[in-house]
Amino acid sequence: MTFNSVIQSFPWYNLFAGLALIAGIYLYRFNARKIDDFPQRKDFLIIIMGVAAVAGFALSNVAGWFFYSGLFELTLLDRIRAAGFTFYAGLLVFIAISWRWMVLFGFKTDLYFNEIVPSITLFHAIARIGCILAGCCYGIKIDFQLLSFTISRFPVREIEIIFLLIMTVLFQIKILKNRLIIYLAGYSLLRLILEFFRGDDRGYLVTGVLSPTQEMALAVLIFIMVISFPKLKSIAKK
């Protein structure tokens, strides 16, 4: 076994997802200091989010069985391996489950989600670095040359990382309210556009024109517009 083969077979994506999760939890703990609540409850929320994240990732893998053709012909082991993870599907499941649980356990959802969102963006940015190292989620082939600098694939992952890091910084210093809505609207719009430049197999959900992620992003954007409309209307009246 050569050094190169060890490096190639190393689970980079998993490792970076783990590191991203730890960074996200630390950022949540830092931000949650502002919330006036018992420390045990703040710790309990980490467990709720952990379970919701596992459920999100697991369900995104199961969703992948339906997105990509021919996976049901494989054995369970190969199917799990081939389906991988769809971040966007996992994110929506994570938000839905953790929201429901927070309501059940009497957490102030608006207050807590406001402090959780920077952790989500930081987690996602670091996990995407794992995508670069693992060689997944790549862009379409392009031929861009500037002096001696050459780009052979559209930098979808890199654009996402920059966007998410900027969002994290903005959430920490500038945007202090309505973070969840702003993040969901901004990220959904970005994914809707970036998906056109993805070079890997994006699967099929409802239409053959848009990828499953784009269809979900579109649904989220419409949902945000519908719930924000009364608010915007009242602001316009004033």
Binding site: P11, L15, G18, Q40, L77, R81
Partner: peptide
Amino acid sequence: SKKRGTSSVPMIMGIIGTVFQLPGAV
């Protein structure tokens, strides 16, 4: 009153262990 842990090490070990156990399971 109730007793509560102070170390983050179990959480970090749990997460990194899971990171390795997932490909380990496959």
